[in-house]
Amino acid sequence: MIEDALEFPRNSDDWLTTVIIGAVLSLLSFLVIPGLIIQGYLLSVARDSAEGRDGAPSFDDWVTLLVDGLKAFLVAFVYGIVPAIVLTLFVSVLAGGAALSAAGGSTGIAAGFSLLTVLVVLVMLPIFLLVAYLTVVAQVRLAVTGSLGAAFEVGTVARIGFNADFFVAVLVAIVVGIALSIVGGLLTVILVGFLVLFYAQIVMYYLFGRGYADATAETTGV
Rank of each mutant, 00 (worst) to 15 (best):
S101Q: 09
L125G: 07
F73Y: 12
A102Y: 02
T64C: 03
T117I: 02
F128G: 06
I109Q: 12
L43W: 04
I85D: 04
V120H: 04
L142R: 09
V121C: 06
V63K: 14
V45Q: 03
T117E: 12
V118C: 04
I127N: 05
T135S: 15
V93G: 03
V91M: 09
T117S: 15
D68R: 15
L142W: 00
V86W: 04
G112N: 05
A99L: 15
D48Y: 05
S92P: 00
T145C: 09
G69T: 09
P57N: 13
G112F: 00
I109M: 11
I81K: 03
V45W: 01
A132F: 04
P83N: 11
L43N: 00
S101E: 12
F90L: 15
L130N: 08
A46L: 00
L66E: 02
G108C: 01
S114K: 09
V78Q: 08
T88N: 09
R47N: 04
S58V: 10
A102N: 00
L119H: 06
L94E: 02
T107W: 10
L100D: 12
L100F: 13
S114W: 02
T88E: 09
S44N: 13
G55T: 08
V67D: 09
G97A: 12
F128W: 02
V144D: 11
A76V: 07
G96W: 06
M124Q: 12
S49K: 04
L65N: 04
V91P: 01
V137S: 07
V131Y: 03
T135G: 07
P83A: 10
T64K: 14
V120A: 09
T117M: 08
G55M: 08
F59N: 11
F77N: 04
L87P: 00
P126L: 10
A138S: 14
V118D: 01
G52F: 02
L70H: 07
V75A: 04
T107P: 02
A111N: 13
V121R: 08
V45Y: 01
Y79E: 01
L116V: 03
A103H: 02
D68W: 07
L89R: 06
A102G: 15
L122N: 10
P126K: 05
L89P: 00
G52M: 08
F59Q: 13
A50I: 05
A56N: 01
T135R: 02
G112Y: 04
V75K: 01
